[in-house]
Design a protein around this nucleic acid. Structure first.
Lengths: 192, 192
DNA sequence: TGTATTTGATAACAAATGTTATCGTCCCAC
DNA sequence: GTGGGACGATAACATTTGTTATCAAATACA
């Protein structure tokens, strides 16, 4: 699991083994809650197999915010960093194999790698990229219609459309399940 | 202008003078374009007086994305960092007094301060905060109705409602000018 | 394999929001 | 001062999207 990341981390063998030994394996069924809205996030998850959604309760309605697949890390980033109650819940969609690491270990590792210029820049770049991602996603909410957002999703993240139940996708796109159904039916009629 | 920031920058007098001498003063009328969509951003602006909006052209429609007031810095952050063509334009709303600095100077300064742990952490924190801001703004688009978004704006950023022409606010909130007008009229009727 | 649950499509109707047009007011440049 | 443009309110109508309900198909699982 971790070998694929090894060449990206210019640290010595001992450090590397120290770091990866902080991760614990976890096998869970679908619909397992990994973090409950309101809790303070203490764990970062790495997905070996399966997928995860981040969602929140909006007046009783379940609104999905993000999806994560294999080889991604997941945490309620604001809660994890600032030790705030998390505004979101984290839940598996499929039965999943995960690796998790405790915040105190991550904090130590980040503290250590911040002195390695290459890794420090990588961290900063990752933060920039995360910001751009939010910006882009947000842009598409202002700029595009729900139909356009769905077409973009099909093109840019086909994995989501293929693997994720439609009602999660609907709230992710900001529309009702009924409307997403209408959008799909309209598109398939146009193609004919 | 710069004295207010001085105590936040633990660098020696010489460095400090070097840094602030990179900024040039600029006085411009309202509706001045500081960066055109499609250009590569090379300047970072600091606002001494006035306000600025960041917007983009969406099929001929002018969509405002962000507002900035006194003591804020403004740039097309993705374009500035990655030297991409900017997806947004930057324009003054009011007649403004600005200070700008060239990208090459900023890059040098960031490179230098990255070795000062305190400033390095500040930079990283600033990036986290920026990410949270986007997330929060985005959340409100999914979570709230346009009316709720307007009420939040009134409460959290009254400056925007007071100083910015309404049609810019409408596109910022993701509604038509007519609908924002309806929202305002509905609210004022409820208060009576 | 059979049954319950989840998922998705569709119809009918309701509510929210956009579009176009018109009008009044304010303000700035001449 | 005054004429034109920017700004904002409002009405009438069109379109989009949500809501509720129902049914069919797929899937999970005992």
């Amino acid at each position: 699991m971790f070998d694929q990341f090894k060449n990206k981390f210019p640290v010595n063998e001992q450090k590397w083994n120290d770091y990866i030994s902080c991760f614990k394996r976890l096998e869970v069924p679908a619909k397992t809650t990994l973090l409950q809205e309101g809790e303070i996030s203490k764990k970062l998850f790495l997905i070996e197999k399966g997928c995860i959604r981040v969602w929140f309760n909006n007046n009783g309605k379940d609104v999905t915010f993000q999806f994560f697949f294999e080889n991604s890390t997941v945490a309620s980033i604001e809660s994890f960093r600032k030790e705030f109650p998390s505004p979101v819940s984290i839940e598996t969609i499929e039965p999943s194999v995960l690796w998790w690491i405790h915040k105190k270990d991550i904090d130590r590792i980040i503290e250590e790698i911040k002195d390695v210029p290459l890794l420090r820049d990588k961290l900063i770049n990752a933060l920039f990229d995360r910001t751009f991602d939010y910006m882009k996603h947000f842009f598409s909410f202002i700029k595009n219609t729900p139909t356009e957002r769905y077409l973009n999703l099909l093109q840019e993240k086909p994995q989501i459309v293929q693997r994720i139940p439609q009602h999660y996708i609907a709230s992710y796109l900001g529309v009702s399940t009924v409307h997403l159904s209408r959008i799909k039916s309209k598109i398939s009629k146009q193609k004919q």
